[in-house]
Design a binder for these strands. Structure first.
Lengths: 251, 251
DNA sequence: TAGTGGTCTAGACCACATA
DNA sequence: ATGTGGTCTAGACCACTAC
């Protein structure tokens, strides 16, 4: 009944109480106090823990839910969001078949072309907030739909958090790669930004995607971030857009 | 002091009260009871009008604000969103210069190439929820940055709501086209969806964008909707991505 | 000073899921 | 029956804006 985990509400600090609560919950998420897919404590429990009203906790969780960090399920609880969810699988992949029938087409067939350790070039280092020459992993893979190679991806990961990642482990994993990152390396991708251009493939890329050298392709450069906006992946994708398109909703 | 504009809260219907309030406010927005840029009544006024608590009105407005239909300004009021706002200008345009310095580059130079009335083809009619052969307007324009033609747009508008739109009026208007649609035709674009592909230009397109015929370009097909998800514009853009890129944030 | 939206609380009741 | 999140209310106080 004495010092709460929290700055005294009587000294309102500078940010609203619910923002402070949100930050505290975020810290627990980041620290791994609750694992992806698991429920976090109920609103009442959190309210007691932080010595605020349930309504204040609710507003904090509302914002976390809006940012897709947690998932509310009525009657059951609030759960730590995960890329392994069936409903939100491939959250970051916006390429959809022209038919619009995502389900009929089934999951992509995935081929790991390559996975090697190397030293970060200047631009890779900049994107991952590393220093040039730091250890990184580079993965190249191809995704095919109905036997048609459609996506060629090169991705770079910081060496330290992904120590032990090999082509074999990539081939062995079933679901989305980001789900594997969560389960095996404790790295949760929370937000990403993409820069999209139209390009022509080089000879090797054309071969891997089975297209002519003059076929225009989407170049999608993605930087994915974990908590605190820490960049944890640089991904350069080449998308064929003869049977698929990149879909974007503008609110 | 008798019949409220609202179903009796004692008969809760099937959707939450705040959703019903939201729908009623939406109707007033759609009917033009308050014009773009103007304030809507205060939360207290709306609560009295609908005979619910201020908190319920607040939650309804919260959702409208999250959907960018209204804009809250502390201490001043809640305002009908508009495309003419300085801060949210070009809400739907995701092409940004590679330098990232949007401001330094200044607004685009706009050239109206063409504006004509014609009959809707099958695909245009489908996108605009019209019948093939219905009257539509077609506009073609080029946007240039620092003298470099960068965007070539063809857009189709339903004939009826845009009666009286001419190339002259387009050339005369200053701000974003969507702001002009609001002010001159009472049509507010609220939501849009885009399908993006990589393509090669035809001869005419290459000429207008001043690029070689084998230059890959982004094809951005946008359908913009007004209230009630009514499609009101089909726009096909060709973007040069040598100095700009399409930027997308994935939450 | 008055009015607006923003925060915080406390309590009642509802809808859903589980045991 | 119990516990969860979801809705609704009422009232107090804060922060910002305008006059």
């Amino acid at each position: 009944m004495s010092t709460p985990t929290l700055p005294d509400p009587a000294t309102p600090s500078f940010s609203p109480l619910y923002q402070q609560i949100k930050a505290l919950i975020l810290q627990s998420l980041q620290a791994g106090e609750w694992k992806p897919g698991e429920p976090i404590p109920s609103e009442m429990d959190l309210a007691a823990r932080f010595r605020v009203s349930q309504g204040t906790v609710r507003k904090a969780i509302d914002e976390l839910a809006a940012e897709n960090l947690v998932l509310r399920r009525q009657g059951k609880g609030t759960f730590v969001a995960t890329h392994a969810e069936q409903q939100v699988q491939y959250r970051f992949l916006k390429l959809v078949p022209d038919s619009g029938d995502t389900a009929a087409e089934g999951p992509a067939e995935r081929t790991i072309v390559d996975c090697k350790r190397l030293r970060a070039s200047a631009d890779v280092a900049r994107a991952l907030a590393l220093r040039t020459g730091d250890a990184v992993l580079q993965v190249r893979r191809v995704l095919a739909y109905a036997g048609v190679p459609t996506i060629l991806e090169d991705l770079w990961l910081p060496g330290a958090p992904f120590k032990g990642l090999t082509a074999e482990r990539l081939r062995a994993s079933r679901g989305p790669m980001y789900a594997m990152f969560e389960a095996e390396f404790g790295v949760r991708m929370v937000r990403a930004e993409e820069k999209i251009r139209a390009v022509l493939p080089d000879a090797e890329q054309a071969l891997l995607l089975d297209v002519a050298a003059n076929t225009p392709l989407l170049s999608v450069e993605r930087v994915a971030h974990t908590y605190n906006d820490t960049p944890m992946e640089l991904r350069r994708g080449l998308y064929r857009t003869d049977t698929h398109h990149y879909r974007n909703d503008l609110g």
